[in-house]
Design a protein around this nucleic acid. Sequence first.
DNA 1: CTATGGCACGGATT
DNA 2: AATCCGTGCCATAG
Length: 478
Amino acid sequence: MLQAHYQALRPLTTAHLAQTMTLLSLTASELRQQIEAELSTNPALELVDERRCPACHRLLPGQGACPICSQPRHETLDEPIVFISPRDISYGSGSTGDDEMPEDRFSSTVEELPVYVFRQVAPDLAVEERRLAAHLLTNLDEDGLLAVSLIDAARYLHVLPSQLEKVQRILQHADPIGVCSGSPQEALLVQLEVLAETHTIPSLAERIIREGMSLLSRRQYAELARQMRAPLGKVQEAARFISDNLNPYPARSAWGETRHSTQETARLYYQPDIIISRTGPGSGSQLMVEIIMPLYGTLRVNPLYRQVLQETDKEQKEALREDMDRAALFVKCLQQRNHTIQRLMQQVVSLQRDFILKGEKYLRPATRAQIAQNLEVHESTVSRAVSNKAVQMPNGRIIPLASFFDRSLNVRTVLREIIDSEPYPFSDTELANLLAGQGFQVARRTVAKYRAMEGILPANLRNGRSSYSASQEHQRRL
DNA sequence: CTATGGCACGGATT
DNA sequence: AATCCGTGCCATAG
């Protein structure tokens, strides 16, 4: 049945083909602009605001709408089972008619933050909880802190404060850690808690934040020490730790700093075009892939047009028919775009399952050409589909889709591991041999390049603990 | 003499 | 057709 459905979607004209190609290479946000432009110029095209698609609703928690396909489709694969559905993003309230004027980067950050956070947590929330999360996120101030009190919000939403607190806790652990806290103090505590999982933290830090916030912010350490009944040195150490590692205003300080992302093209913040998440915890879980559609509702040809077409006289008929054809074409192209991306992601996910779940080390070097062959499409098609798109991984990290095709990422990761635990600084030649021992055959010269990419100093400048400042200085020089 | 970085070439990618 | 990436060759630094 699906087969038949898509048979009808095969490109029929060169115009169709060209438009599909164009749409294929667009990001979710670019697509949104495109759709809006089309909607405003073509009266035959209509966006039906159906927020829920029954089938999606059953499978996805919450309101995963299926905007483009009027018949929602979920395909299952044998190996990792993949559900794919376009997914909606709403852009808060108001300001829909904004013309792209990137003059003010800061304001765009403010506008993006709620969406960015919502995307991370949405998969983990139940339907009702999503509503709460959305409400909280629309009430953030520019620092990423809650502008309303939890009590007020709970009253407004007609829920128990405890329910809202639960949602808030989840939000606070999303990427700008501490976001959605009620106060700087609260944000710090959340950050401290998260940090404590991986680092050792000064014992005094928590108490200082809890009890000595005002003194801390005024840097009155002596007074603080007296109040804590602790030595001044300890207090200063803790204060130092706090100012170095924590941030009372989660939204400030470039939360897109994506450390360790290995891609030099790391844009500040991505809007993911595709989201990969796990359907549940544990090893037997399946992967769920969502293709983002940036608008609510179903896009279709306005059925009224068909009727009117019957009843008008000839000269008007021509104009109407043209609009209708354009609209139909657009919808087809859009469907084809999503279909192509869907098939692509099925390939990618089943090939790179280990990479998605276990990390960069397990990336398989795959070429676009190979995927294109499996998909029986031209490699330039794959190329277009892959470029300029961002994927959000199950762990919340957002990376370019192109990194799935990075031929050297796994080698570089292993290289990093070797160097991180080396007993003495290995020379590039030794590193090359060690890598070969692990099955990575790379030339000595290439090892040097990878080192540079990872910002690791050459052996002669590397003494045991490679200091950050040194390596950063080195990076700057490149 | 050894370890690295620069330049250039060929194949893959876009 | 233009560009990027892995490599080999060679010059330079220690």
